[in-house]
Each structure stands twice: as C-alpha cells, then as structure tokens.
Design a protein around this nucleic acid. Structure first.
Lengths: 240, 240
DNA sequence: GTCTATAAGATGATAGAC
DNA sequence: GTCTATCATCTTATAGAC
C-alpha cells in the first residue's frame, strides 16, 4: 500500500541541491532521477499552477511519461501525491531556515537586531528561489496558495512551518526586549502575507508598476520586504 | 446566450446592503432575492472554499435548489459563473474605495498623512468584512486566493483593482513628497500581501499565537496592518 | 424561467498480466 | 516496477418540453 513512505521522500536526490560527501552505505536509488521524483516534479508544477482539483492523475502521468497506475502505485490516492509534493521540500526548507536562524544567533551574540533576525528568516527562501531552479519556484507558488486557502491553509501552514516561526519570534523578543507577544504575532502575520505574495511571483506588481518593478527580481523584492517588515515590527512592538 | 449581461449583475440587490432611497423607475426584479442572485451567493461560497475546479455546476445547482440547466441559462459556461461572482462585488468595492479616498482627500486638504491615506484605502474592506455578512467574507476569501494565483492572479487583480491602487499611490506621493515611485510600488506590494492574507481569515494566526490573536478580529487586524504598513512605507520611501 | 432527458466525454482507482 | 484493460462514477453542456 505504501511502498515508499512519505517521510523518506526527502532523502532522495533533490534537483539543484549538491549531495553531501558520501559516508557509509549509499542511499537507495541515489544514482538517477528516479521515476517517483519525476512524478513529484511534474505534480508540483501542475498543482502549483492549477490547484489540487485542477490537475488530473492522467495529466501528471502523461507529462511524467508513465502510466496512471504507477502514480497510484507510488503515492496511493491523489491526496497522497499532493501531500508528498508538499512535504518533500518543506523538510529541506525547515532545516535550512532553522540553521540560518541559529547561525545568525551564534554570529550576532548579544547584538541581535530586528533587521538581522528578519534577514536570517528570509535568507533561505531567497536563496532557493534564486538558485533552486524551477522546482523550487513551483513549490513556493504552491505554498503561497496554501497560505491563502481558507479551508486547509491555516492548518497546513501551521503544521509545516510554525516551528521556524516560533524560533524567529524568540530571537525577535531578544532583539526587542519588552515587546508584547501579541504585537509580535500580528507583525508576523503581516510579514507572512508579504512573503507569500513575493513567493508567488504572480506578475501583478510588474503590471501595476508598468514594468518598473519586477516580481522576479528577488534580491530587490527581499531587500524591500526586509526593510518594510523591520520598520513594521518596530512600529507595532514599540511600547507606548 | 446571455440573457443577463455581467455588467448589469451588480445592479440587483446585494445582501446586507441598504438600498438607497428610490428615485425614478424601480430597477428590474428589485423585490425578491431572485434566483440568479441565489446562484451567485452559493457559487461564491463554494468557489471561495474549493476554487474553480473544486466546485461542480451540480453542487451549485443543488445548494441553490435549482437545476443545472438553469445555471447555464443565466451564466453560460462555468467560467461565466465564476466571472460573474468575481465582478459582482468588485464594482461595489471599487466605487466604495474610490469614494473613501476622495472623501479623505477632501477632508485632509493639504495635510495628507501616510496613516490617513492607508486608513482610507483599507476602510471599506474592513467595513464590508465586519458588516457585509457571509457573502462578503466569502468574496474576500476568493480575492485572497486570486491574489496568490500564479496563472491568472496577476492579470485578474490588475484588471479589477488597479485603478484604486493608483489613486492611493497618488495621494501617498502628496503625503511623502519626493518619494521614489519604485519604492511606493514595492511598499504597496508588501501591503497587498498583508491585506489579502487578512482578507482570507485562514485561522493560521489563531493557531500560531495559541488563541492570543484571532484572524476574525478585524478591527485589531486592520489597526495593526495600518500601523505596520505606514511604518513600512515610510522606511522604503525615505530618501537616503 | 424552469425543468427532463441525455449526449459525449473525463475521472479516480484497481485487478491482474508481465 | 511498469503496463493493459477496465469499472463505476461524475462531469459540462445542450436540446427541447412545459
């Protein structure tokens, strides 16, 4: 029923990510872009564009060059495929973001700043967005839509991404001693909206600005987002 | 083929909105919650929860208590139904927001402030969200998802909502003389993300904060959003 | 305006051969 | 692991009666 459990999916090779130096016994199927990864890549692309109900198993199978039965063989029901897509990069991203926050904490010592924490929090989405290839772009577009979904969005985002948010808020509390917890949560809510809109790269800003600003210009987008959010956090957390 | 053109849809009664004092000849079918409005209400609810592909004409018809053929009779293809849902409140909202900005412009005279402009921009989404009933909540959830959609989101948001954004940016230029146009667009991008996440009321913040903050507490959400965004606009637009 | 009936095709999922 | 074949169901959409 479940020949390839979801929790093991992320151990397979991920496009564009350099494999660490090999130690001990080689992981299973480490040599080639295997079939299940191809299916996940195709599903990720299609789900990110058309949503869960807008994609058929047949389309995924056709684009991946396999039969529909094989998709069911690997992932069970359609929902299983979707969950596997969501989980694959979530685990990588979470580990990376947590490491970035901890690296910043170490390097900053007692001189934590709001800007520094926010930059550390945003750093890995910028890096994967810039250097992760189309797979990561599709994934981020999927996360952006999950964040906006009123039915399962809140629950999904909480389940996958809250731990790293708590870690960031913890550091922000040290950067702004005395900041009310409520204000930190509300400020994060605003940053979260800005971040997921940026992740989506929907092109709206391009049209609105007549081409002056580009959704795909991630360094500029993140620089502006970080400065906007830092000022916003300060404004909400200042005692008055 | 099109017995009820889309541009006329919004002239029918909208739930929860008080009709203005009647003048001249009464509008067609002003007396009852007519069938096509019921269909739109049901479709709005379902589309906002499950997206375009996640809703079937049969579901809409069943919930509305009519036959599927009647849905096609009023709105043509499924896409026509979706567009009609989207357009109905967009026209109302645009007129209201534009009026709110112009009212603020008149009242503020030469003393325009960043906070004032942002509050005027946000005012009507807060009011309809608070007092518009479930129909407006569903509509806002739908807009939130449109804003996050990478395929048609950018184009859709531009088409429906850009005029009022240009008006706001124009006023912000007067509140912050010398602000670079690029910075204003990037700042708006961040506000737009925060606003649509707020509109979605996905409940994520409730879980994240352990109940301390509530997505449905709109006055608090808008107050924090306005202060967050005002500080963000100032930070990005300051000459340095 | 509203319904019945139905066309014409797509869908998720599985059993079983290789 | 991979494919063929197939089931039972659901889908959008329309023609035509009332």
């Amino acid at each position: 029923m479940d020949p390839k459990p979801q929790t093991a999916l992320n151990t397979a090779g991920v496009d564009s990510r350099k494999a660490p130096a090999r130690r001990g016994r080689p992981p299973k199927r480490a040599q080639a872009p295997d079939t299940s990864e191809t299916i996940l890549d195709v599903a990720e692309d299609l789900f990110s564009k058309h949503g869960f109900y807008g994609v058929t198993i047949r389309e995924v199978a056709r684009e991946a060059g396999v039969d529909t039965a094989l998709v069911h063989y690997y992932f069970g029901a359609k929902r299983g495929l979707f969950d596997a897509v969501f989980l694959r990069r979530a685990e990588i991203l979470n580990a990376d973001r947590m490491a970035a926050l901890e690296r910043y904490e170490r390097e900053a010592g007692d001189d934590l700043t709001v800007e520094g924490v926010i930059n550390a929090f945003l750093q890995m989405t910028l890096e994967w967005g810039e250097k992760g290839g189309p797979g990561w772009k599709h994934y981020f577009a999927l996360v952006a839509q999950a964040n906006a979904n009123p039915v399962w969005g809140g629950e999904t985002m909480t389940r996958y991404f809250d731990p790293v948010v708590y870690r960031m808020i913890e550091l922000l509390k040290r950067a702004m001693p005395g900041a009310p917890g409520e204000a930190l949560f509300w400020a994060y809510h605003n940053l979260s909206g800005a971040l997921t809109l940026t992740l989506g790269e929907t092109g709206r800003l391009d049209r609105l600005s007549g081409g002056v600003c580009r959704s795909g210009d991630l360094p500029t987008a993140y620089d502006n987002m970080a400065r906007f959010a830092a000022a916003g956090f300060r404004a909400l957390c200042a005692r008055n």
